[in-house]
Simulated assay, not measured.
Amino acid sequence: MSNIDRAQLVQQLTELRVEHRDLDEVIIHLAAHPASDELRLKRLKKRKLRIKDIIGYIESKLIPDLDA
């Protein structure tokens, strides 16, 4: 993996972590209000889980392969 590819992955990872944290705050805020839109809340939670999966995938790509 070249340094440019690695830098792009690190940048994407940073952006995804920020989005994940922001979604968490929105979800907490919506869940605290009983009149909130349940469908919107469910969609936000799914989006947060997808982002978490992508973060895990990118982190695994950034770990160098070690030949045993």
Rank of each mutant, 00 (worst) to 15 (best):
residue 39 L to D: 10
residue 14 T to M: 10
residue 51 I to Q: 01
residue 38 E to Q: 13
residue 25 E to G: 01
residue 26 V to H: 03
residue 67 D to I: 08
residue 17 R to N: 12
residue 45 K to I: 03
residue 57 Y to C: 01
residue 10 V to H: 13
residue 44 L to T: 00
residue 35 A to V: 10
residue 64 P to S: 14
residue 10 V to D: 13
residue 7 A to F: 14
residue 53 D to Q: 11
residue 37 D to A: 01
residue 4 I to Y: 07
residue 27 I to Q: 00
residue 39 L to F: 10
residue 65 D to V: 07
residue 4 I to E: 10
residue 51 I to P: 02
residue 50 R to K: 05
residue 60 S to N: 10
residue 57 Y to P: 00
residue 9 L to M: 15
residue 18 V to K: 15
residue 49 L to W: 08
residue 30 L to K: 06
residue 55 I to T: 04
residue 30 L to P: 02
residue 66 L to P: 00
residue 31 A to R: 05
residue 63 I to Q: 15
residue 11 Q to N: 13
residue 42 K to E: 08
residue 4 I to L: 11
residue 63 I to L: 07
residue 29 H to L: 09
residue 3 N to H: 12
residue 37 D to N: 13
residue 39 L to M: 12
residue 19 E to F: 04
residue 58 I to W: 00
residue 34 P to V: 08
residue 42 K to C: 04
residue 44 L to D: 02
residue 12 Q to T: 12
residue 33 H to S: 13
residue 38 E to N: 09
residue 67 D to T: 14
residue 59 E to N: 04
residue 57 Y to G: 03
residue 47 R to I: 00
residue 13 L to T: 07
residue 7 A to D: 15
residue 3 N to R: 13
residue 37 D to S: 01
residue 47 R to N: 02
residue 35 A to E: 06
residue 2 S to C: 03
residue 63 I to S: 02
residue 65 D to F: 05
residue 36 S to I: 09
residue 1 M to C: 03
residue 7 A to G: 10
residue 33 H to G: 06
residue 51 I to N: 04
residue 16 L to M: 08
residue 49 L to I: 08
residue 67 D to K: 08
residue 17 R to H: 05
residue 66 L to W: 04
residue 38 E to M: 10
residue 40 R to H: 02
residue 13 L to E: 03
residue 22 D to S: 14
residue 63 I to P: 01
residue 29 H to R: 11
residue 46 K to G: 07
residue 52 K to E: 09
residue 55 I to A: 07
residue 8 Q to G: 08
residue 4 I to T: 11
residue 51 I to T: 05
residue 44 L to G: 00
residue 12 Q to W: 09
residue 3 N to M: 14
residue 67 D to M: 06
residue 10 V to C: 10
residue 52 K to V: 06
residue 53 D to R: 04
residue 61 K to T: 07
residue 4 I to K: 15
residue 51 I to E: 03
residue 65 D to T: 04
residue 59 E to L: 00
residue 5 D to Q: 11
residue 23 L to K: 03
residue 14 T to L: 12
residue 14 T to K: 11
residue 25 E to D: 09
residue 65 D to C: 07
residue 42 K to P: 01
residue 39 L to S: 06
residue 17 R to G: 01
residue 28 I to L: 04
residue 64 P to I: 09
residue 48 K to S: 05
residue 4 I to Q: 13
residue 13 L to A: 04
residue 20 H to I: 06
residue 65 D to Q: 07
residue 29 H to F: 12
residue 17 R to M: 04
residue 36 S to G: 05
residue 36 S to M: 03
residue 22 D to Q: 12
residue 62 L to R: 08
residue 17 R to Q: 13
residue 9 L to I: 13
residue 9 L to D: 15
residue 55 I to M: 03
residue 41 L to H: 02
residue 11 Q to K: 12
residue 36 S to P: 04
residue 37 D to V: 00
residue 25 E to C: 02
residue 18 V to H: 11
residue 32 A to R: 13
residue 12 Q to R: 14
residue 8 Q to M: 10
residue 13 L to V: 06
residue 33 H to K: 11
residue 68 A to H: 09
residue 68 A to G: 14
residue 65 D to N: 07
residue 22 D to W: 11
residue 22 D to C: 09
